[in-house]
Design a protein around this nucleic acid. Structure first.
Lengths: 225, 225
DNA sequence: ACAATAGTGTCTGTGAGACAGTATTGT
DNA sequence: ACAATACTGTCTCACAGACACTATTGT
């Protein structure tokens, strides 16, 4: 029972769609491939799942290796297993979506490959099926902003309503009315907790600083119109 | 490069959460395991992904083998890859969610194992991590009813508003106001297309029959309160 | 006639979007 | 003073929930 001949062997990898906001654009972390196939082409960061780790743990490990950060939002996005997605062998990739606040310049991976933040709309043609995976990740992020507090994942721990609104505007690519947005988000129970502090870092009148609250879903949701 | 020693070998399977409505309950298709481990225990139907087929194709093939049906809604649910989820070896399972109208008795699988429709709330303890996968599938179905036309996947090709309402009531486990539901779903553009026929199969005044319309998402959504 | 179900109308409260107006800072 | 941003208030329209009412069948 279950001899090797009973099933075809697969390699399993995790690939990461790591999104952040940099210079007023939604950006994804890309690394340049140092080997064939697709040598020299930009790709999503990722790597093989190890024998003794779960998929979630593999994603968290790769994320830490690439960005140096943990404690950011990380969720499974989906799996991609077309038989010809990697010409060398049969590979199933489990994609993960990570959302991070603005980070310093990307750290080089363990293989010292080049890395950069690329605006998601001008990422160009990526290696393998990574363009499709990136598009799926961006769409997931856009829709999750509607009914979860995940917009706060792009913000520093303490943030203003205007900064959160900027997140929504940049991720959705739409302009929002600052006054209605303020009334809306401060009215959703459990979304924001005032810290009591204020800041003038955005100019103008001092703004209340907030932390993310305990709500896991938004009632009512913020809808893209 | 990429010698077998470079990565650990995995087995990749697809497991199916097939949901339908039978005798006023939301039911899932289960098969009884004929082999260790978990011999005799109920499990989700599934099997190994073949060397030359995509994940989607493997799921569709397994679904056809177990139910005899294609042309039902089928979508990827997520992947489960805990190192110890199968005691024999490292297996990553890609779970799929299928929604089907009421079917005849389940056909036996190719291995002639026993099969049945079980109400999702009283499925008991399943093999491996299938209880978790089933719960995730049910929750996915419940939330997808809110903003997609997937409720129609549980109906026959021609259905009445009352039959669609019954779908929502059974999947969500809540009672809905028949009059408001009628006004709501007939007002969502692209959700329903009248066939021009009527039926009295539900008793009372003849009801208009509808087909599913072209809408892919519901604007506005039907919300669980 | 009556039960049963289909479908419409009406009212009320809530919330979204538009936008006027006030508050508090830096320069 | 002025620009800039934060925040509050007000109006209108759309829609959800509650529920009265009418319509059309089978028995």
């Amino acid at each position: 029972m279950y001899r090797p001949s009973d099933f075809p062997p697969f390699a399993v990898t995790v690939d990461l769609v790591v999104l952040t906001l940099r210079s007023d654009e939604l950006c994804a972390l890309l690394v340049r491939r140092g080997e064939a196939p697709h040598k020299g082409r930009w790709a999503l960061p990722g790597g093989f799942v190890r024998e003794d780790e779960s998929l979630d743990a593999a994603a968290a490990r790769e994320l830490a290796e690439e960005t140096g950060l943990d404690r950011v939002h990380l969720e499974q996005l989906g799996s991609y297993g077309d038989p010809r997605r990697d010409p060398r062998m049969r590979v199933v990739s489990v994609a993960y979506l990570a959302l991070a606040p603005d980070l310093p310049v990307p750290v080089a991976g363990t293989d010292a490959s080049e890395a950069r933040w690329s605006p998601v709309d001008t990422a160009g043609k990526l290696a393998f099926d990574h363009g499709r995976i990136l598009a799926d990740g961006v769409e997931r992020a856009r829709s999750k902003l509607e009914y979860t507090p995940l917009g706060t994942a792009f913000c520093a721990p303490d943030f203003t309503v205007a900064e959160l609104r900027r997140v929504y505007e940049l991720v959705w690519g739409t302009a929002l009315d600052a006054r209605n947005f303020h009334r809306k988000v401060t009215g959703v129970p459990g979304l924001l907790e005032p810290t009591g502090e204020t800041t003038t870092r955005d100019g103008g009148r001092p703004a209340q600083l907030y932390r993310r609250g305990p709500a896991a879903t938004l009632h009512p949701p913020l809808v893209r119109s």
